[in-house]
């Protein structure tokens, strides 16, 4: 690919309540070379973000149990950690640009793994560039 950056310097936080889907998403990110954290709900995600400042991408599902769903989490993260790029996925909802924080990306489930990898690389290129 001729990347001009080291993906491992960019950490991705995967938030997904379904263990199987989370495992696959995590594997996908790791395979793409990114440092990857995982959380099964918004509360865990916030705690990880607080501890790991290298997290530059939030990749979250929308439907989750807990104090926040994925969209609220995305907005909360944009508020507290403005540089963190936002990627949102859902099998239930059609999400529009208006629902997302600025520059947020949406992927309908099931998503092609390559689309995720491309998006992650794009974000990493911007962050590193």
């Amino acid at each position: 690919m001729g990347q001009s950056f080291n993906p491992a310097d960019v950490a991705v936080l995967v938030v997904e309540d379904d263990a199987l889907l989370r495992a696959e998403a995590v594997d996908l990110c790791i395979e793409a070379g990114f440092t990857t954290y995982e959380a099964r709900n918004a509360d865990q995600a916030i705690r990880l973000l607080e501890r790991h400042s290298e997290i530059r991408v939030l990749f979250t599902d929308i439907e989750m149990e807990g104090s926040m769903d994925g969209l609220k989490l995305a907005h909360a993260v944009r508020e507290r950690w403005p540089p963190v790029a936002i990627m949102v996925t859902s099998g239930r909802r059609k999400v529009t640009k208006e629902d997302l924080p600025d520059n947020g990306l949406f992927f309908a489930k099931p998503y092609p793994p390559d689309d995720i990898v491309k998006a992650l690389n794009g974000i990493a290129a911007q962050v590193m560039g």
Partner: peptide
């Protein structure tokens, strides 16, 4: 169905 497809995809 989409969730199932996502599971299938993961599997």
């Amino acid at each position: 169905m989409k969730n199932s497809l996502a599971m299938v995809q993961a599997i």
